[in-house]
Simulated assay, not measured.
Amino acid sequence: MPLLDKALFLAIAAQVFLTFAVLVMMGRERVPRVMSGEIRVKDIAVERTAYPLKARLLSNNFDNQFQLPVLFYLASALSLWAGGTGWVEVTLAWAFVVLRYIHTAIHVTTNRVHRRFAAYVLGMLVLALLWLWLTIRLSLLQS
């Protein structure tokens, strides 16, 4: 596998590991509360309000890992499939992943909404640039 393909794959793996890390943290917050009887299953069967704030933040962040990152995974897969992955894709992919880590760190700790939103928007812009670049590269630059 060429070096730039490996670098892109590692960005994908880093995003996947972030999702798993949030899932594990969420489980560590939620499962003991249900197992101890602190929270009844019927109180969480439909909504999350019975959980304490930390558990709800982790749950919301976990859900968020299946929003913009889905477009990231698709863009990355298209880049790998098309071949010729370049520094532009790799740089934008890693920038997106770093911003997702920042977004998650804010979301599950201080949850300062303005900072979290800034990280989210920057990640969205980086992802839009990745898609714009891929569209240009795959439709106009490759024959």
Rank of each mutant, 00 (worst) to 15 (best):
V88H: 00
M25C: 09
T91L: 07
A14F: 04
S36N: 04
A14K: 02
L132Y: 13
P69S: 05
T49N: 11
R100G: 00
A50T: 08
A75M: 02
A93T: 14
G83E: 08
L78H: 05
L3P: 03
L4Q: 09
L140G: 07
F66T: 13
S36I: 08
A77T: 13
R33N: 02
K42P: 02
L132F: 10
W87S: 11
A105M: 04
Y51R: 01
M35I: 14
V24W: 11
W87C: 05
M35R: 15
V88G: 05
H114Q: 12
S79D: 04
V24T: 15
T19W: 01
N60A: 10
Y51N: 00
A128T: 15
V108K: 00
I106K: 00
L80Y: 07
G27N: 12
V22M: 04
Q65F: 07
V16A: 10
V97P: 00
V97Y: 01
N61D: 10
G27Y: 10
E29A: 14
A95N: 03
A118W: 07
L92C: 05
L58I: 01
K54Q: 04
Y120F: 15
W133Y: 15
V98C: 05
L53A: 04
L4F: 13
L10P: 03
V97Q: 01
S59H: 12
A119H: 01
T104G: 00
L74N: 06
V90Y: 03
T110I: 09
